[in-house]
Design a protein around this nucleic acid. Structure first.
Lengths: 171, 171
DNA sequence: TTGCTTAGTTAGCCTAACTAAAGTATGCTT
DNA sequence: AAGCATACTTTAGTTAGGCTAACTAAGCAA
């Protein structure tokens, strides 16, 4: 059905009116409680999703590196190492393994032949997409049957949190 | 951050799990989209929180074992190994390290002296609580300033998802 | 007693993922 | 050209975590 944002104030559960954002101790405790539950949920959710990754046959560090290569385009081995917060020597075997699996290709930088440019192959992109789809599909099963209204709420909340996270990282 | 290509795919391609009660293509695509964003959020959230753990000085497996000991009360080494899904020999050094750190205590089972009972010390409980508080506090900062209505929504959604997860695990 | 079972430890080995330091090839500057 | 800088690889070693097999100690049963 049309995923339209049906907005309705949940008068029942909304609690007392809070006209101004001030450091209310009650509200702070409430925030903590919600944070705690969100924390636990995130852990359980990812643990639950991890089993999907095993089907891919890629270890965590390789999967993570592949993801950087796929999304950040051709990237030097050094930059890739930096993105993954490891030293270049640690990245060398990871890239080699990915190359042997046919998921990335290494080529020389056109202007600086010292530099190894790593780029994703079509197969690499596919594989990452497939893994993502496995996870997301699994998660979608969980959400299947949620009424549209709940999905709307969830989406809005998720976006808000992502925004906050981003703000925090840059700010 | 990720250039997501959300494709309208038949739901069958996504998850092997259960037949949806009604395969409405629109709603299914919507569900996938929300799942995708939730997935990304969970990853980012935990990655962002991980840095808090470093302050604790406990590796993942030790932290996890400690958490079992704290919450499941005195537990035999074998049961602990089973809970952590490893073999008993792998658990031995973990428990030793926790004991050396003063976080757990080992004692003989009163009725069966072969059995090693592992129980948390006050320090162990504190440390776990502290770690949790670090994470949750960090997360709470993120939520600080959310209007009460949003918190309510978030809480309800989180609880729903946790319920679903539990259902899935048992069912 | 003798012998089997169970709980945990010890010993020895494996893999993954990291590291620092040294080596090699290339680029840049003077 | 000479010499330093940079980008990566190689080498050698660490750490964390896992495993099996063999051992010790304790319980149980005939």
């Amino acid at each position: 059905m049309a995923p339209r944002t049906i907005r309705k104030k949940p008068a029942s559960a909304a609690g007392p009116r809070r006209p101004a954002p001030r450091p209310d101790p009650d509200e702070s405790a409430r925030t903590q409680a919600v944070a705690d539950r969100l924390h636990t949920l995130a852990i359980h959710l990812l643990r639950w999703l991890r089993k999907e990754d095993e089907a891919l046959g890629l270890s965590g560090s390789r999967l993570s590196a592949l993801s950087v290569v796929v999304f950040a385009g051709p990237v030097s081995l050094g930059d890739l190492a930096a993105a993954e917060q490891v030293r270049p020597p640690s990245m060398t075997p990871v890239v080699l393994a990915l190359e042997q699996a046919g998921l990335v290709k290494r080529r020389a930088h056109p202007a600086d032949r010292r530099t190894v440019l790593v780029e994703a192959t079509a197969k690499g992109r596919e594989q990452l997409t497939r893994g993502r789809r496995l996870r997301v599909g699994q998660l979608a099963n969980l959400l299947e049957g949620f009424p549209a209204r709940e999905l709307d709420e969830l989406e809005r909340t998720v976006d808000m949190l992502r925004q906050k996270l981003e703000d925090d990282r840059s700010g």
